[in-house]
Write a protein that binds this DNA or RNA. Structure first.
Lengths: 248, 248
DNA sequence: GATTCCCTTTCACCCACTGAAAACCGGGCT
DNA sequence: AGCCCGGTTTTCAGTGGGTGAAAGGGAATC
């Protein structure tokens, strides 16, 4: 384990936690972070003392509330969320469908907020969760407005298919992205699960850069994307405006 | 700076960020974390490489999305939020007032979620923000069900007043807490700002321990706490049930 | 009582970390 | 252009916090 910085070990300990494994014993933690047991113990105890981790009565470690507090200051997390929530609320109230908010992180997207309609079509996404860019509505919006090199990298690798309708042909995807830019919104019709359709629109910052995307996810049968688009676009514009008027 | 663990310095760097100062230059960061400039530089760069921090074109550091992702795994953050959102959504839809969700952290509370009605009475709380336990509705619920030693510690120190109506007398507060336990809900009438009234109810985990509280914040004039209580309590029970049926 | 698994502490070695100092960089001013 | 100045980045030799092997609990399970 020599030759690694202490910081990297601390980060590895945090990285060990995943949605599936959000409570870890010391031994599991050490193995996942690839550090020796005594080291894991020492570092973990220090993290617990600070509040970055918490230790339950079962002696398992979990991510601590204190870390969550600090992390909530992430500009692309909370700041964005704060601006977007009221508009997402409106969308939900009018439609009672799933409303999602996402940003791009490399070649993936991260869901920042989600309002899940209890009777709406179930989606298997999670706040804080990641997903590929080329299938979902929000993903297509984010990809369409991503820097050229990101798009090229995305298009040069094989595109994973999630359902029979997922666009996996780079040439076709390129056309789709052009459409997204032209129309000002994206439609993903059954490209993740065949029963769901999503309509997404771009959110811009003060510099007019696309920094996020909102979407509405509805049942695929009988949905009219063209009718939903104005709704989503209006919400996106509202968020964009709020973002511009706030600190940034 | 000798004599401090590396981990503590890393944590100090994270701790340097506050709601008011969420974007820091290297120099500010070093000063706030009380570490030498080269050290701050080295550690910060490592944090940026991992994604715990991000560095903008203005060369300022901000909390990174990656840290936010990991932190979203906090059981008292996301897990709770996920269970609570649908019910909070319902409360909002019916009342169009502010809906808040909070947990206790020591002698303070942390807001985990908040739905802000655009036309509702403005509240100066923030998701991830802290507040004292003895003034708000959620605070009273959390304090009323906190371990005895927490209550004693709280009652033995001077209680800060936020408005003219804040309960600052320990004897009176003790009575209020007993009422909260008896009634199953708490009312804070103008104890934070005189124009707002909040009604809160406890959320319990699978072991029947109170782990969080939901509240409705409305205009103080003409509000009927007794009428709102069943609404909030129903939501709280719904969340409790969802929490019990999920992994925990 | 024996076994097993996990957690915690000790100890001597050593390498990652340290701060002073110096180099670098870009922008504002004369 | 030349100078200055605040902030940033790199260098360097010394050293103290970090290290893992090994041993010592402790609490379930067989």
């Amino acid at each position: 384990m020599t030759g690694r910085s202490v910081t990297s070990k601390v980060l590895a300990l945090l990285e060990a936690f995943t949605p599936e494994a959000h409570a870890l014993t010391l031994t599991e933690l050490a193995r996942r972070a690839d550090v020796s047991l005594p080291t894991a113990h020492r570092r973990a105890m220090e993290l617990v003392a600070w509040g970055a981790l918490e230790r339950g009565p079962d002696s398992r470690f979990r991510i601590g509330l204190r870390l969550w507090e600090v992390a909530s200051l992430a500009p692309r997390g909370l700041g964005l969320r704060e601006a977007a929530m009221p508009f997402m609320e409106d969308l939900y109230e009018v439609t009672h469908e799933n409303v999602q908010l996402a940003v791009r992180a490399g070649l993936e997207l991260v869901f920042v907020e989600r309002i899940a309609g209890r009777d709406a079509v179930p989606v298997k996404t999670r706040v804080g969760g990641r997903f590929a860019l080329h299938a979902t509505g929000v993903g297509l919006v984010l990809l369409a407005h991503a820097p050229a090199e990101v798009q090229e990298e995305m298009l040069s690798a094989p595109l994973r298919g999630y359902s029979a309708k997922t666009t996996t042909d780079p040439v076709r995807l390129r056309e789709v992205l052009a459409d997204v830019r032209r129309n000002g919104y994206a439609v993903s019709d059954g490209q993740v699960t065949t029963d769901a359709l999503s309509v997404a629109a771009p959110i811009r910052d003060a510099d007019d850069e696309v920094v996020a995307a909102v979407s509405l996810v509805v049942r695929a049968d009988g949905a009219d994307p063209a009718a939903l688009a104005p709704l989503v676009q209006t919400a996106a514009r509202g968020i964009t405006r709020t973002l511009a008027s706030s600190v940034g």
